[in-house]
Amino acid sequence: MDNTETHAGRPPQTDFNTVFDNDLDYPRLGNVTFRRGTLTDNQEAMFNENWPTIGKDLADEIIDVDTWFNRQGHRTIVEIGSGTGTSTAAMAPLEADTNIIAVELYKPGLAKLMGQVVRGGLDNIRMVRGDGVEVMVRMFEPESLDGIRVFFPDPWPKARHNKRRIIQSGTLNLFASRLKKGGVLHVATDHADYAEWIDELVDVEPTLDYKGWPWDECPQLTNRQVITKFEGKGLDKDHVITEYLWEKK
């Protein structure tokens, strides 16, 4: 059985080097597909009821954050690859004055996060279904975000797949372009080879000031508060969690 589904509203993959007129490296995703997942009847009903209000699909549509959250002038952070939303939902009450936009391809993950949002009355979380890099370039204006989070991205451990990793010189440039001055990029990985990969890129983007970890004066919440599912698996294997913080110059 085919375990992927095409998404009618998904635009073609961006030719980033042409759009941004550079020769930087961007994730090479090939034909991005939406993994099919099974939702329970209750999850499906909840998803269908709430998605029109708190969810959006990837599209060529700049998000009007103030209108979507129905409040004006609040800080906005985008979390790319939110998974099942464990850390997203745990952090949200601790940053109630911040708008959190969780971006994820996998519908069952979004449904699980939605369940936490609905049950917990978490009114500062919204969701976008789509590839995080495409969402960033198509749905957010330059210098519009206060923060971007990338927690435990797929490490693509095989050397021939390294080009698919989300942390690349071009992606860092894109993230920086979407951050306001003083905005924060926060990345965490539990994969040693990926950490070495990121170590080589910490100073590659001239508009990002690498702060290392920890950064006590960071203007946003950096303590993920709970151990995420993937982080827990990493700790079970005695993996080291490596975190990175940058500030937009």
Results as ranks from 00 to 15, higher is better:
residue 212 G to E: 11
residue 50 N to R: 07
residue 80 I to D: 04
residue 203 D to G: 11
residue 38 T to R: 15
residue 222 T to K: 03
residue 209 D to G: 08
residue 122 L to Q: 07
residue 18 T to H: 03
residue 119 R to G: 06
residue 194 Y to A: 05
residue 236 D to M: 12
residue 240 V to H: 00
residue 191 H to T: 06
residue 19 V to C: 01
residue 102 A to P: 05
residue 140 F to P: 03
residue 185 L to T: 09
residue 93 P to F: 13
residue 84 T to P: 03
residue 225 Q to M: 11
residue 39 L to W: 05
residue 88 T to K: 05
residue 86 T to I: 14
residue 32 V to E: 10
residue 80 I to R: 04
residue 6 T to A: 08
residue 136 M to F: 06
residue 51 W to L: 01
residue 108 P to A: 14
residue 217 E to Y: 01
residue 94 L to P: 00
residue 29 L to F: 06
residue 169 S to G: 10
residue 103 V to Y: 13
residue 58 L to F: 05
residue 4 T to E: 10
residue 184 V to K: 07
residue 35 R to Y: 10
residue 9 G to W: 08
residue 222 T to F: 05
residue 46 M to H: 02
residue 130 G to E: 05
residue 4 T to P: 00
residue 240 V to M: 00
residue 120 G to P: 06
residue 29 L to Y: 09
residue 174 L to V: 10
residue 134 E to I: 08
residue 242 T to D: 00
residue 141 E to I: 02
residue 30 G to Q: 08
residue 151 F to M: 10
residue 81 G to K: 04
residue 184 V to G: 03
residue 35 R to N: 06
residue 147 G to M: 14
residue 176 A to T: 05
residue 30 G to M: 02
residue 9 G to V: 04
residue 248 K to P: 10
residue 83 G to V: 04
residue 85 G to V: 02
residue 171 T to W: 02
residue 56 K to I: 00
residue 81 G to C: 06
residue 203 D to M: 12
residue 58 L to Q: 14
residue 174 L to W: 02
residue 233 K to V: 01
residue 248 K to H: 14
residue 176 A to V: 04
residue 67 T to V: 05
residue 123 D to F: 04
residue 6 T to W: 08
residue 223 N to P: 08
residue 192 A to M: 00
residue 81 G to D: 11
residue 32 V to D: 13
residue 57 D to M: 13
residue 111 A to Y: 09
residue 46 M to A: 13
residue 180 K to V: 14
residue 218 C to I: 01
residue 6 T to E: 14
residue 4 T to F: 15
residue 28 R to V: 12
residue 203 D to C: 08
residue 235 L to E: 03
residue 86 T to K: 15
residue 119 R to C: 05
residue 18 T to C: 02
residue 41 D to H: 05
residue 183 G to K: 06
residue 83 G to Y: 06
residue 29 L to S: 09
residue 178 R to C: 09
residue 5 E to P: 00
residue 160 R to N: 12
residue 33 T to G: 00
residue 60 D to Q: 11
residue 4 T to Q: 09
residue 51 W to R: 02
residue 162 N to A: 14
residue 175 F to V: 13
residue 111 A to Q: 11
residue 85 G to E: 09
residue 174 L to H: 05
residue 246 W to E: 05
residue 237 K to P: 00
residue 206 P to Y: 10
residue 2 D to N: 12
residue 172 L to A: 07
residue 79 E to R: 11
residue 125 I to A: 08
residue 196 E to K: 11
residue 155 P to Y: 02
residue 154 D to V: 00
residue 233 K to Y: 07
residue 28 R to S: 11
residue 13 Q to I: 04
residue 247 E to S: 15
residue 146 D to F: 08
residue 14 T to S: 11
